[in-house]
Amino acid sequence: MTTPAPVWTGTCADPFALRVPDGYVMYGTGGPGGDRAFQVLSSPDLVTWTDRGGALERLADEPPQASYWAPEVAHVDGTWVMYYSVGSEQSAHHLRVATSRDPLGPFVDAGVDLSPDLPFAIDPSPFQDRDGTWWLFFATDELSGERPGTVLAVQRLESPTSLAGSPQLLLRATADWQRFEADREIYGARYDWHTLEGPHVVHRAGRYWMFFSAGNFQDDTYGVGLAVADAVTGPWSLVGSGASVLHTGVAGLIGPGHNSVLTDAAGDDHLVFHAYDTTRTRRQPYVVPLGWDANGPRPDWDAA
């Protein structure tokens, strides 16, 4: 198995990439600092990537040290729409939306909190169903059950900047590998906290496939699992028993996770994800060809 190389040597965590008229653009957590959040990279061919600075104009009412996480972008009626979260480190994150006329930005926040009634929400991922309906998948916290922690949910987008109805819980932790931290102090109590995050959905082979990350993004427990359903709202069933798509050790990777799926100009899919460098100080982006069969996706490491 060939060990893939990152497509860029800087930090670009939680990478999301999509095709644009003149090539491809990738967005990720991190960035050049200053007045804009989120790293932006562009490429004509998925091989050579160029640093294009920051994507999002920072919010004036958020403190300078606020954390901006996991952007994903959709192209809706001629406008580029970015979904992201902002908060203080690992608490009080809320979902936000920003727009731009250029995929390279600058994106300007639309002034809307998409999750005002949730104590914590991250990793928004827009998905357009075959009937044209838009949905927003995301992660939020749920304290009930045997494995309390961060779970996966979905809500219908009434417009690019507004949600309809209430969140529908789709998937929660079921296994030890999904533990974020034992005896974690949070919400005024202590929990063996589990985390599912980074949902990303595609429709292939007549079914809906949801990639998700789990474990602790800071260490070797982090990886990518898979669930499948016959409808956007489920029920969703796990595929395999662990981090079946990505895990530490596969192809020599360290802490791989938070993926998206990019379809290129030829109609071929690619798995876009991050993994740590050897010093474990930078999460760098990877792009690996992705094939499909009746059992789901198959990363083609030898073609990476």
Rank of each mutant, 00 (worst) to 15 (best):
S237E: 07
T248C: 01
G257A: 09
T248W: 07
V232S: 05
N216V: 06
F217K: 02
T248D: 01
P256N: 09
G234R: 05
L253T: 02
G257T: 06
V250A: 15
F217S: 09
V224W: 01
N216K: 12
A227T: 10
D220R: 10
G223Y: 08
G255L: 08
A251T: 06
A231G: 15
D219E: 11
D219K: 04
A227K: 13
G242R: 03
D230M: 03
A214E: 08
H258Q: 13
D220C: 00
W236M: 01
V250C: 11
G234D: 11
G225M: 04
F217D: 00
G249C: 01
L238I: 00
W236E: 03
G242P: 00
A243P: 15
L238H: 13
H247W: 04
H258S: 06
G249R: 05
G215V: 05
Q218N: 15
V232L: 09
G255R: 05
G240Q: 12
N216A: 10
G257E: 11
A229W: 09
A243V: 09
Q218E: 15
W236Y: 11
S244D: 15
A227Y: 13
Y222I: 07
L246R: 10
A251K: 04
V245E: 02
S237T: 13
G252R: 09
G225E: 01
L246A: 04
A229N: 12
V245W: 10
G234E: 09
A231I: 03
V232K: 07
S237K: 14
L238P: 01
S241Q: 10
G223N: 11
N216Y: 07
L253V: 02
P235T: 02
D219C: 07
T221V: 03
F217Q: 05
L238R: 15
D220P: 00
T233S: 06
T248Q: 01
N216E: 04
I254P: 01
P235I: 00
G257W: 14
F217L: 11
L226R: 05
G240L: 13
T233F: 12
T233M: 06
L226I: 02
D230I: 00
G257K: 14
V245Q: 06
W236T: 00
H247F: 01
G223A: 11
G234W: 12
D230K: 02
G225R: 03
V239N: 03
T248R: 00
V245M: 04
S237N: 09
V224P: 07
V232Q: 07
V228L: 03
L238G: 06
G242D: 15
G223F: 08
V239T: 09
S237V: 04
Y222S: 06
S244T: 15
L238Q: 09
G215T: 06
G249P: 05
H258L: 05
H247K: 13
D220I: 00
V245K: 11
A251G: 04
D219F: 10
V239H: 10
P235D: 08
S237A: 14
L253C: 02
A227L: 11
L246I: 04
L253F: 12
N216D: 15
G240D: 04
N216I: 02
